[in-house]
Design a binder for these strands. Structure first.
Lengths: 207, 207, 207, 207
DNA sequence: CATGAATGAGTTTTCATTCAT
DNA sequence: TATGAATGAAAACTCATTCAT
């Protein structure tokens, strides 16, 4: 549960507590929603299922979130702020170092934020069918793209040129991540899947 | 609708028409279900939604399918029989020819069976959350694997060795297909997406 | 199954077979209905449940019986004709002999026709709530009364006078029979229940 | 309706009214269910039928009762708490007095709780066919047995010995009660039936 | 004669949402 | 703020009945 820890509680010091408490509650509820989502899938995320996970009533959820949609929006905000796609490649001195950092970052993120990754893939899939999810899915995909482009720039700064184009590599990497996420839920051991993932990533990344 | 055409209509033989008519109806209903599925996603494939697409009552659907599960089973059967993963590479004389045939087959299948492909990806995703779907998802993935291995063997017969391993290439190809499927529904032009897919496939396939 | 055997098939000799075949079918269907009834209770006797027990389609049931009600009527007729309440006490020379004959007859009937007895009690109960069953329940109860009165007359002919009145004894005997029927379905051993019943009957019957 | 009156209305204390109001509603709904049950039989006790009796929607019933089974459980609880089998024979000085108290208690209970008695017999019957009812039926029968044994002890304390055994007498008494319950619903006058019952009881009870 | 296609009302249950307090 | 009462639509499924063939 550490991975979805409550970030807003430190805000309870200053004067305008009210706002902060409100935000804290919203956050807590959204975290509960994320848990439900990652375990049962979007279509089973019901307001009551979420409330059951918290100390709050189901009316509360509607008090803090105008609708289920607003709740999804908050969930997406949390995903964004978790920087689950980031890899700090600024210190890497050569292409191989970048690849190692990237592979490690992906695997670490999968270990600590597997729920969020699973949600991302579910969101991307569902957004094909539920109009109201498209905006959120695009936001998350955009965050992914931004992180990916930063990596690309580092590779290119270090003199690597991609052929086939970088984009296709990015798609492959993302597909490997998705496979690891699926393996996890389908019963396969997460650590094993992540180890396998690391091996595979190093095979396809430059170097 | 042409892509999901009615296979049972040839039922004009003689005595056992009854069975054929029955099977025809079952097929028609399953096709209606596939349409609903591909447009609204699995979680909105309800018996009533399907009936609404037909000239029949919802009781009818239950008349032909004991349960929703039986309906899904028939849908999966149709997907299987559509051979949406097949590529006849037996005639290919060199590696490049194989790649072209594979790329063309994938693109053709996407054009004629885009609904089924979309359903496959949705099924694969939902099966993570809905136990009763796992068997079906595994069946479809197995069909995919079988088709993919046939291609691999042809490549290897023609002397190609894969490094990184073939499996990673297959995942990449499948991810490209998924992207094209998503592009379609997200508003991008299908023909454009398929053209792009073909270009991309030829870039990653051997040759 | 012997207890609900088909009585109408011997009629297939004469010229007007048609009628007889028709009656035979009606009988067979009603027997299937009786089986369903005794196992699942009246409220679960559905036309399809019955048809499933036979070699016929569910449309057949409606072909032979205008409605579920007509089917019930036929079931009741079969119960009546099975003489499940009868005891031939004409040969009994003294009161004790009558009591033994009655006890034995009740136990024998329970062994060979336990299904019908169970149905009788279920019918009597349901008829309180479903108007259309009342007539049938009353018919069956009347048959019971007739058989009971014959026994009473024999006792009185042999010089026995009942105090408390015979009617109260009849109610007690019937309640003991009902208890044995319930014991059977609730898992207790039928033979044991019948043996117990015999002992109890001999304790309350004259002599 | 007096016989099934609302027990929770005293909920005017202070802080924990909420609970009481909730319990009150539950009780009210269960009472509505008991009415439906006693009039139409268990197989017609549907959530919608019950809601139709109240000013509430059928969703409400599900709000208060997780499932139909929970509703039945509450109904049974109400039956238990109504002590419909009790007779205070502690003050009776001789056997005849016990018999009179018992007869009067049975008749009084039948007058004030005839619905509950009818439900008991229906429950006992249906429990033969519906597994999920067995536990409830056994509970109610156990309550009956407990009350009956208390009476037996009083008789025996006062020196009466039963031959035939007490158990057979209890069955007879219960059967007489059932007959009165049936007479009521089948159209016969309740007061008349109860008067008759009293006479009959005094004929079979000791003294 | 006999079938099974077809319907519509019924069952239990879940759920997003609104709202009075 | 926060609760939980209340609703109505929707889900999967069952069933008696009608009817064309």
């Amino acid at each position: 549960m550490t991975q979805l820890a409550h970030a807003g509680q430190a805000a309870s010091r200053s004067g305008d507590d009210v706002q902060d408490v409100h935000q804290g509650r919203r956050h807590d509820l959204a975290v509960a929603a994320l848990h439900t989502w990652s375990e049962y899938g979007y279509s089973h995320v019901s307001v009551r299922n979420i409330a059951r996970r918290t100390r709050f009533s189901h009316g509360m959820v509607h008090y803090y979130f105008r609708s289920k949609d607003a709740l999804v929006a908050e969930c997406v905000r949390i995903i964004q702020e978790s920087h689950i796609f980031g890899a700090d490649v600024s210190a890497a001195g050569d292409v191989l170092a970048v690849s190692h950092i990237v592979a490690d970052a992906i695997c670490d993120s999968l270990r600590t934020h597997r729920r969020l990754h699973r949600i991302r893939f579910d969101l991307r899939n569902q957004s094909q069918f539920e109009r109201e999810l498209r905006g959120y899915a695009l936001e998350v995909e955009h965050a992914h793209d931004v992180a990916v482009q930063a990596i690309r720039r580092r590779y290119e700064t270090l003199g690597w040129t991609f052929d086939p184009p970088f984009e296709l590599l990015a798609i492959q990497v993302d597909a490997l991540r998705e496979r690891a996420v699926r393996a996890d839920l389908l019963g396969d051991d997460l650590p094993v899947a992540v180890t396998q993932l690391r091996t595979d990533l190093l095979r396809v990344l430059p170097g």
